[in-house]
Design a protein around this nucleic acid. Structure first.
Lengths: 195, 195
DNA sequence: CTCGATTCTGCAAGTGACTACCATATGATA
DNA sequence: TATCATATGGTAGTCACTTGCAGAATCGAG
């Protein structure tokens, strides 16, 4: 929880991180994910392949990022203290929907589209979702409002809502704001549950 | 839909398929998934590595099987004609729960445990779930009872229920029947939905 | 500013999953 | 038996990913 020191070293690390990611998207969006090698990306970012692996672990990891896991966890923890679990999920989701991304919406949409178009990347994304689903399950249990099985179901539903919202936002209507997509999703859930 | 001819060739193919899978589980359950190579498995099953890849595609594929996708789809299609989508899902799930596996329950439980213990296998399983989720979405849309977004949510919920039931059956109580686990799961869903 | 400690990077060598291709063996068919 | 279709084995190659080490950049203290 200590504030990370903004030393020169930290700056350079962040720069390198973003440079690798940018070059990776640039190369892959023209040639395709499988057509390019990690060495290609490394060369374009002017680092060694070792460095790429040290930063991202896997080739897929370069294209996946999670800037929402932390705020989502915090938001949900708060909401869980004041209402029923499912309502807390919807509330947290709505807040998340209004947060905005660190790059323009159109660009983010394009990246999501790219990930979804590439089977290997979709699979890797599913993996990170799985992990987060597990953390959510623990969170629900610790919040004390549900037994483990209900927590598991709740976590699965939550990830489904997140995924559905992202997909709806990305593929349904290119003009829609993300918060509108989230609203559509929660409305649709009510329809499914018949209430 | 034509009944597959039970020629000698087909028999041998089935035998080879099962022999590879059995040897793979046998080797991996002692040495670990990552510790053994595809060549090890091939040698133990007395085939070439090429053949293993022709049968299973990937190393993970050897350990994953789906004997439920087809009956699940058929069951669900029928149920969707006579009741609301969510109820149809629960009905189909209950029917599925009573089907039984092609190997003893304990052995199946052990295999599931093994898959869940091995990150690479869990990830691969998630991939097949993702694919089936997509098919379910299409199924719900074609059944005509929901719009695409609701269908997507419904499909996600369905896969969550399946996964939750399997996990509960595998890890909660070693004596429980699978159908009992399914019943617990549907009950738990009602609890989550507050009804 | 200097120097020792810490951290980051590049290089080299190796493993193993996976693919493409061709030759050969085996089962199906007439 | 002769012919055709298909399944298998072997070989060579690509590339993701790991490990260990040497050198370079950066940091913090005096």
């Amino acid at each position: 929880m200590a504030a990370p020191p903004v030393t020169l070293r930290q700056q350079k690390k962040r720069e390198t991180f973003l440079r690798i990611q940018d070059q990776a998207f640039r190369l892959a969006e023209t040639a395709g994910f499988t057509a390019i090698t990690v060495e290609d990306i490394a060369a374009a970012a002017r680092v060694s392949a070792s460095t790429v692996y040290r930063y991202f672990g896997t080739k897929e990891g370069i294209f996946l990022w999670d800037e929402f896991e932390l705020p989502a966890t915090e938001l949900l923890t708060v909401e869980l203290e004041r209402q029923a679990p499912l309502d807390a999920v919807l509330a947290a989701l709505t807040s998340l929907g209004g947060m905005g991304f660190h790059i323009p919406d159109d660009e983010m949409r394009q990246r999501v589209r790219f990930v979804y178009a590439e089977p290997a990347l979709r699979a890797a994304m599913g993996e990170t979702f799985q992990v987060f689903e597990g953390k959510l399950t623990d969170l629900f249990v610790e919040a004390g409002s549900t037994d483990p099985l209900a927590a598991r179901i709740l976590a699965g539903m939550t990830m489904t809502l997140v995924a559905a919202a992202v997909e709806f936002w990305t593929f349904a209507d290119p003009q829609m704001s993300f918060s509108a997509a989230v609203e559509h999703t929660t409305t649709s859930l009510d329809e499914v549950l018949g209430r």
